[in-house]
Structures are given as C-alpha cells and as structure tokens.
Amino acid sequence: MFEALWRYRYFVLASIAGELRGRFARSRLGLLWSILHPLAQAAIFALVLAEVLGAKLGGVEDKTAYPVYLLAGMAAWTLFSEILNRCLSVFIEYSGTLKKIAFPRICLPVIVWGSALLNHVFLLAAIVVVFLFFGYIPGAAWLVLPLGIVLISLFAFGLGVMLGIFNVFSRDIGQILTVALQLWFWVTPIVYPQTVVPEHLRWLLHLNPMVSLVGIYQDALVFNRMPDLAPLLLPTVIALGLFSLSFLLFKRASPELVDVL
C-alpha cells in the first residue's frame, strides 16, 4: 500500500488541491471559511463564558488569557475532528469514483488527511495573527507544535479509517460518532481547565488520550512551556497502534468495499 501511495503521489497531491478548490467553489471567501469557522466558534465560547459568565483561566490575571486558551484547544480539536469526520465518510462520499476509476483505494483517506493538514496550517497562521493582537508573542515552545500535529493526525487518521470501513458496512457508525464526538469534546479540557474537574473525576482524564494531545497546544500557545512527555507516552502508543491497525484492516476489507458500496 505504501508503494502504491508513492507511485500515485502526484495524483494524491493534485487531488488535495482539487478538493480544496471544490470545497469552496463559487465562494467569495473560499479557504477563509475553514479558518473563520473555528475562530468564530472560539469567539462565541469566549463571549458567553468569559464575558457573560465571568470564566477565567486559573492563575492568570490577564483578561485575554481565557480566549487564547480557547483558541489553542479549539485548534487542536478542529484538526482531530476534521480528519476523523472526513475519513469516516470518505469511502461513501467517493463511492462513484471507486466504481469508475482504477487507483489505490488507500489514496482517498490520505487525500482528506492532507487536505485537513493544509487547512490546519492556515488556521494556525490566523491564530498567530490573533495572538499577536492580544499581545502574545510566539516563544520557543511553539516549536513543539509539529509534535502535536503529528500525534493528533495519526490518532484521528487511524481511528477515522477504521470507523470509515465499518461505516460502509453499517451506517449506524456515523450516527453514533456524531453523538460521541459531542460528548468527547466536553470531557476534554478545552473550554475549561483541568483544575476545575472534581478530584474524584480526574481519573477519567487519564483515560482520554485527547487530554494530553490538546495539552500540547495549550502548553505551547498559552503558557509558552514545553509539554510533559510522560503523559504523552500512552496517547503516542494508541495513535501509532490505531494508525498501523487501520492499514491492516483496510487491506483485509478493501476487496469488499466497492461491492458493498
């Protein structure tokens, strides 16, 4: 499969560019919408929670710290959810293409993966501008962001491809994931810091790999500090495990995908 991906690398790159153009065809703002949506969502949370409910970031007196904390968490979650959702539906979305054109089917999730990564780069560029507006100067800790991007994307890709294969055979998977993602978002410290979680419930945070992965962004962007590597060990193992398992599962299910579609 990896050899096939290399042989079709120009097809993959051209498809990523075509997907970005097609997604925002006949839109005046085009690619900006992929940046404005998460920024707008973070702004709404900041307005409601910080201004209306008076939420603050513990240990930080700066009023802009909480919106910055929200942006950091939303950036990490947007990357995760976009890759996961696109991989979940990619085989169904491109069912017509699979039936008409002969090419390695593994190219499809890789194309949506690359498209999501490109969107994320543009989003981070917009966040840098917002941070500068708030007076947050990028520090050396920002250099660790590629680690967060790699781990989150591997985790989301592996999980997304596996669920995407199951979704072909049972469309209930997509409906269940929609609800599960909403719950997953709220049990991940994005709109609230970990310190507000009651002591008797904090053990749940250790079961959620996204806590440590989102924490990479929060530590680097908000507090300008390097993340603690020890809590990242388990999420790294899970991400690599799911990534590897997704290719094995795809290899076994690939011959039946087109027939079921």
Rank of each mutant, 00 (worst) to 15 (best):
Val197Ile: 15
Ile190His: 01
Gly139Val: 14
Leu205Arg: 01
Pro198Cys: 09
Leu163Trp: 04
Ile165Gly: 05
Gly160Thr: 08
Asn208Gln: 05
Phe185Asn: 02
Ile137Arg: 05
Pro198Asp: 07
Val161Glu: 13
Gly135Asn: 09
Gln194Glu: 15
Val191Glu: 09
Asn208Gly: 13
Gly174Asn: 08
Tyr136Val: 07
Ser153Phe: 10
Val179Lys: 03
Leu183Val: 15
Thr178Glu: 08
Asn208Leu: 06
Leu183Glu: 03
Trp203Lys: 05
Arg171Gly: 10
Leu151Arg: 04
Val187Gln: 06
Ile165Tyr: 00
Arg202Glu: 15
Gly148Phe: 11
Tyr136Gly: 02
Pro193Ala: 10
Gly164Pro: 00
Ile176His: 05
Trp142His: 00
Val196Asn: 00
Gly139His: 08
Thr195Tyr: 11
Glu199Gly: 05
Pro138Met: 08
Leu201Ser: 05
Ile152Val: 08
Met210Val: 08
Thr195Asn: 10
Ser212Thr: 08
His200Leu: 14
Pro189Trp: 04
Ile137Val: 14
Leu151Glu: 07
Leu163Ser: 02
His206Ser: 11
Ile165Lys: 01
Leu201Tyr: 12
Trp186Leu: 11
Ala180His: 06
Gly148Arg: 02
Val187Ser: 06
Phe169Asp: 06
Tyr192Leu: 10
Leu204Met: 13
Ala141Thr: 07
Val150Met: 03
Ile137Gly: 00
Gly135His: 05
Thr195Ala: 15
Met210Gln: 03
Gly174His: 04
Leu207Gln: 10
Thr178Ile: 13
Trp203Asp: 04
Phe185His: 01
Asn167Cys: 15
Trp184Glu: 08
Gly148Ala: 11
Gly158Ile: 07
Val161Pro: 03
Val150Cys: 06
Gly135Ser: 05
Val197Ala: 15
Val144Ala: 03
Gln194Arg: 12
Val161Gln: 07
Phe155Asp: 05
Gln182Glu: 13
Leu159Thr: 09
Ser170Met: 08
Gln175Arg: 05
Met162Ile: 15
Trp203Gly: 06
Asp172Arg: 01
Leu163Met: 07
Asn167Lys: 07
Gln182Ile: 10
Leu159Ala: 12
Trp142Ala: 06
Val144Arg: 01
Val179Trp: 11
Val150Lys: 00
Met210Ile: 11
Leu159Lys: 02
Pro193Ile: 14
Gly139Phe: 13
Leu201Gln: 06
Ile190Glu: 01
Val187Glu: 01
Trp142Tyr: 05
His206Tyr: 14
Pro209Ala: 10
Leu207Phe: 13
Ser153Leu: 13
Gly135Arg: 08
Trp142Pro: 01
Ser153Cys: 13
Phe169Pro: 03
Ile149Val: 15
Ile173Trp: 09
